[in-house]
Design a protein around this nucleic acid. Structure first.
Lengths: 346, 346
DNA sequence: TTGTAAGCGTTATCAA
DNA sequence: TTGATAACGCTTACAA
């Protein structure tokens, strides 16, 4: 039942007839201790199976070398790529990641924040849930000077740094592309416009319409949770419209795909009857037929940037307060789902 | 620069003229302290913004209330469901999760294990990477009596508990189903047969062939990393076969889908020319056309079972050593991709 | 019902 | 180059 006893620096010190101070210094490779003693200490540590106790250090240093990550969901291609990017930089810097998914629920996000807070993360990387209205659960971090960096779904917290793409521009390009294909009645499927990404995509959509003298029509805006199933339900709504729209711009690929599948089942031809553009360049966009035109954006890079920026903050390398928004490049990838004019594209 | 000072039990004790022992007891709702003092203490803690210091406790109690999770990848529907299941039980029990992805690399798995070890997780939940041969990186945990539970991709570590499905049976059913559809030349796409899931699926495939007097042919076994791209490459290999096989049983849906898409592009009709069965019931299986027949299995449940079992271990509720393998139910979901006989199915 | 005090394994200051 | 020692904030005998 009793755990095997842990080896501590006291044990090493005793065996070697040196002080724990020397052992401690040697273990962190302090140049002040002689090569010879260092070697002895390293060897003995190895031999006795010593392992460093993070908690003693945390207690002593008042920091944890842990970074919290709160994301809406783990299960998207995009998100797992972002996390891989984050891991690549934080691991290099000796930090550990505490990851939690809010499952798009404001309540779970609050809980996650509390867990992070109690675990005294040194910093926080956050992408907000759809639902979240109130950002009060982040105040506690601000109060303790724990830096927070938002990525993708960001907050307009005054002191927050953000890493994201120009969603407005992406949406503008998508919509303009559809217009260039001759579409005039363009449905936009999106999530409740609480998050910047959806607000901005909607704005880009409207701007493109306006710039091409197409009147904006509220009834073409469909709001749901952007799941594949929600896409199928959106299809039902679209089929009720009269006249039928000639294009759909969905705020993510999953939803676009669910919608396309359902419409096709109802006999709609894509892109001839209704053209489609999604967002994210999820792998599913190359499975659905026709392949989905979408906006590609760099998840891995986004993770790297967010993490690097956070770690700079932690190290006091406050890379000029001016750069508190980092904008990454995104691009429209045109595939068959939106090409009304030519048909030889793959 | 300096962090605002943290409030400790000493501060609370001083203000209230009680001892730190009383404060400590009150804070954990010890029945021995009077309701009145408790209330005073709780109120003051709230008011002064006290937060509990896990590290001091960890240091003192020699445990961390943290559970490590190592998975091959975060980005599958299956895995994120498993994690949601795990979260649901551990959070309830007051544990925190340390999650890490090995990205299917043995090296990263070793690193993750080291991180977990150094963070002194109380227990470990693991699903192995493709590549992992040697399980020595888990020995350190065994040596320290840290319980490990494997799920899905399990190890035959003698003392390990495992939670998984009957992969052999799933594969047997899939293959038998294809045979019932009249298929005789069935390709099996799988990962290197190091992991139980792939070994067992291969065994189930072989068994089904044998039971139906179909000779096993080595050239029908295609080994790759089961990604969507790998599926496309497998398609190229399949197109070289002469005669063409009449069915494919892939060890996951992503790979099946990549393969189907590529074959269709080459003019192969599915299921008429080649029927398909996948594994996992990933959402993509209802996007690809025709919809993919697959094996459904309960990720959320698997996460719950693994976590509950681990926590029982930690609490000493050693639910009989006999039950060191928990088998969950799986089921074949028949969709159009495998139906050669009828064509009216959706 | 409450208090005293030792101990958990580090780091860092000061002195030698 | 090394050592002695005081924190860091908590839990828990044991005593009162």
């Amino acid at each position: 039942m009793a755990k095997p006893k842990e080896v501590t620096i006291y044990d090493l010190a005793r065996k070697l007839n040196v002080s724990i101070a020397t052992v401690s210094r040697a273990l962190k490779d302090d140049p002040v201790v002689s090569k010879k003693t260092k070697k002895k200490i390293f060897d003995l540590a190895e031999e006795m199976g010593y392992r460093y106790n993070h908690f003693a250090r945390n207690l002593r240093e008042q920091r944890t070398y842990t970074i919290g990550v709160i994301v809406p969901r783990l299960n998207s291609y995009f998100m797992s790529t972002v996390i891989a990017g984050i891991e690549s930089v934080v691991n290099n810097e000796g930090y550990t990641l505490l990851i939690s998914q809010s499952s798009e629920s404001a309540g779970k996000e609050v809980d996650s924040a509390k867990t992070m807070f109690n675990n005294r993360v040194d910093g926080l990387l956050v992408s907000l849930a759809y639902e979240t209205d109130d950002l009060a659960h982040f105040d506690q971090f601000v109060k303790k000077d724990v830096p927070i960096i938002f990525f993708d779904r960001v907050a307009d917290h005054p002191d927050g740094t953000s890493v994201l793409i120009d969603n407005r521009k992406g949406a503008y390009e998508s919509t303009s592309h559809l217009i260039a294909q001759g579409c005039k009645h363009i449905v936009h499927i999106t999530a409740p416009p609480k998050r910047n990404v959806y607000v901005d995509r909607l704005a880009g959509y409207k701007q493109a319409l306006a710039d091409h003298h197409i009147p904006f029509d509220e009834k073409y805006i469909l709001i749901n949770n952007l799941s594949q199933e929600a896409g199928a339900q959106a299809a039902a709504a679209i089929l009720q419209m009269n006249p039928l729209p000639d294009a759909v711009f969905a705020a993510n690929d999953n939803c676009a795909v669910g919608c396309m599948v359902a419409l096709k089942k109802a006999g709609i031809r894509i892109p001839q009857d209704i053209a489609f553009v999604g967002f994210n360049n999820d792998p599913v966009s190359t499975v659905v037929e026709p392949n989905l035109t979408t906006i590609n954006y760099p998840g891995y890079k986004m993770g790297e940037m967010a993490a690097a920026s956070l770690i700079n903050h932690l190290n006091g390398v406050n890379s000029i307060d001016a750069t508190n928004t980092i904008l990454l490049r995104s691009e429209l990838i045109v595939r068959a789902s939106s090409l009304k004019t030519t048909s030889d594209s793959e």
